[in-house]
């Protein structure tokens, strides 16, 4: 589902800073992979490259067999619209929109009418347990509720890939656990491929595999048994 072949990403003048160095990776459909490492190890760069917001200096990234390097900006946006859901540590909800409108936004960007988009958003919010928060704006909700809305928004269009950047980083441990259980349930229902960037060992245990990055390189890969989770 997600494949990286010898991906390098250099920053600065003359490529002085190596954010990712020769990373190769294959993640199958429905697999959950956690990416861990200290700050500056290249975790976020990896996510940005996979979702097509950034381009590698060299190497290839394939999503569902499609090489991102062969797509222009608009085509990469379309791919992201149709195949990749994203959730962030800071939720990144639009403050002026209601919960329902936030969740419906990706569908609206796909050109789906307001009525249909909001009906689907309502159903999705019911699945994440927020049927009674449809008309609330983000600042009227708790952190856990906001992240649930962000998850609903990421999965509203049934993307085969979900990229999560520290989804529990801004939540207390109990709420973080609830979010991970929600992701677990939705994964079982939708068979979504999940790439999870985290500092949190407990969150990583939710995955099938852990990649440990240091200075832009994959230094260790751990396969977890189901029982361990």
């Amino acid at each position: 589902m997600i494949e990286l072949k010898g991906v390098n990403r250099l920053f600065g003048e003359g490529g002085a800073v190596k954010a990712l160095a020769d990373v190769s990776l294959l993640i199958g459909r429905g697999e959950r992979v956690a990416v861990m490492g200290p700050s500056g190890s290249g975790k976020s760069t990896l996510l940005n490259l996979v979702c097509g917001l950034d381009e590698p200096t060299s190497g290839a990234i394939l999503i569902d067999g499609i090489n991102l390097a062969e797509l222009n900006d608009d085509a990469r946006t379309r791919l992201r619209r149709e195949k990749i859901g994203m959730i962030f540590q800071t939720f990144n909800l639009l403050p002026t929109l209601t919960a329902c409108e936030n969740v419906a936004l990706p569908l609206r960007l796909q050109g789906i009418g307001k009525g249909q988009a909001e009906r689907r958003a309502t159903a999705m919010l019911e699945r994440v347990g927020l049927a009674d928060r449809l008309a609330h704006r983000p600042d009227q909700l708790s952190g856990g509720e906001r992240q649930r809305i962000a998850i609903a928004r990421a999965l509203i269009f049934d993307p085969p890939v979900l990229l999560a950047d520290e989804p529990t980083g801004n939540l207390d441990s109990q709420t973080g656990d609830e979010i991970l259980r929600l992701l677990d349930r939705l994964h079982d229902e939708l068979n979504t491929t999940i790439l999870l960037v985290t500092h949190n060992e407990d969150a990583a245990l939710f995955c099938d595999r852990i990649l440990r990055l240091r200075d832009g390189e994959v230094v260790r890969e751990e396969h977890l048994r189901k029982a361990a989770r």
Partner: peptide
């Protein structure tokens, strides 16, 4: 700016 970033990240084209 952040709102624009969010929109771009979740699938808005630059033309949108």
């Amino acid at each position: 700016t952040r709102e624009i970033g969010i929109r771009l990240a979740i699938g808005a084209r630059r033309s949108d």
